[in-house]
């Protein structure tokens, strides 16, 4: 029997005036699963996350955590849910420890346990030696780490992470992913919304792409690439000589560079080399590129700006 999903969203719909933010979203996240929730601006990611957090009242559909349906706040038990906001939602004039104590108390951590949890959080974030410094004096990366910790003091089993690494340097970003890897080891399910597609690709088990209020792709990276771009590969060739691009099915990219797309790379590419050579030209360089999440994302959502 399949385990009860940590998070299940069924038929979620929400309209703001004329704008349809969610148009029937279905989504499941298994316990311990890491899901990257992607989408262009205005796709409905924030509305979906806020609906799960209880801050948006759905027009239709439902949200369930570990099988128990939860409504808009204060309806439902969200004690196993952690929400990490994108903003640095900390009190700058409080110390790191005081911030953790404040948010821990509001998250319902028992006072007898709070000190231990705060100590663990300080170690986890690498801020133990700055525990008694004012947050206002922290770097952006330190604030981000503390921002995450403040939402997790009640040790939730499913976490909504909104752009956890935005605006921080590569070192801090790496530290944040190390922190989150510890959550993975603990078996925490994570829903990560981000525009950093490379990060989403590297850290997530599964990906959901949202656009116009609907989930338009869902699965592992390979699933999505296969479903959207197929098994084909993109190739860029640098050719010496006056080649007839149209005749060879090539796309002229300029400066003697041509693009091509093959579904059976191993048979089609040697055949192209032979035909180019027969025409009196020479292939001087070849770049075979594995399609990326970015390719699939652009393929699915288009190049049009969303603002």
């Amino acid at each position: 029997m399949a385990a009860t999903p940590a998070l299940r969203v069924t038929g979620a719909a929400k309209r703001f005036g004329d704008r349809e933010a969610l148009a029937g979203v279905d989504l499941e996240v298994a316990p311990g699963e890491w899901l990257a929730l992607l989408g262009p601006n205005g796709a409905g990611k924030t509305t979906l996350v806020r609906a799960v957090a209880g801050r948006v009242r759905l027009d239709a559909g439902s949200v369930a955590l570990f099988g128990d349906e939860v409504g808009p706040l204060p309806r439902g038990d969200r004690s196993r849910l952690g929400v990490v906001p994108q903003e640095i939602a900390l009190h700058p004039k409080l110390r790191a420890r005081e911030n953790l104590e404040h948010w821990g108390a509001l998250l319902g951590v028992a006072s007898g346990e709070l000190g231990v949890r705060v100590g663990e959080a300080l170690e986890w974030t690498g801020l133990a030696d700055r525990a008694d410094d004012l947050v206002a004096s922290f770097s952006g990366g330190m604030k981000r780490r503390l921002n995450i910790a403040c939402s997790l003091l009640h040790v939730p089993d499913v976490v909504l992470l909104d752009e956890p690494t935005v605006g921080v340097d590569p070192q801090s970003r790496a530290r944040i992913w190390e922190m989150l890897a510890e959550l993975r080891a603990r078996g925490t399910a994570i829903v990560l919304t981000t525009h950093q597609l490379d990060e989403a690709q590297s850290v997530s088990d599964t990906i959901a792409i949202l656009d116009h209020g609907r989930v338009i792709a869902r699965g592992t990276l390979d699933d999505i690439l296969r479903d959207t771009l197929g098994a084909g590969r993109g190739v860029e060739l640098r050719i010496d000589g006056d080649v007839d691009a149209g005749a060879f099915g090539l796309e002229a990219l300029g400066d003697g560079v041509y693009g091509a797309r093959f579904t059976q790379l191993t048979t089609e590419l040697p055949r192209l080399f032979e035909r180019v050579a027969a025409s009196g030209c020479t292939v001087v360089d070849v770049d075979v590129r594995r399609p990326s999440l970015q390719d699939a994302f652009i393929h699915l959502t288009g190049r049009e700006l969303r603002e």
């Binding site: 801050r55 906001p85 900390l90 009190h91 319902g108």
Partner: peptide, 14 residues
């Protein structure tokens, strides 16, 4: 402005 109000409300405090 700082986002702590949203965090406060998200934590279930009405």
């Amino acid at each position: 402005e700082r986002g702590t109000l949203e965090r406060l409300l998200t934590s279930g405090i009405g």
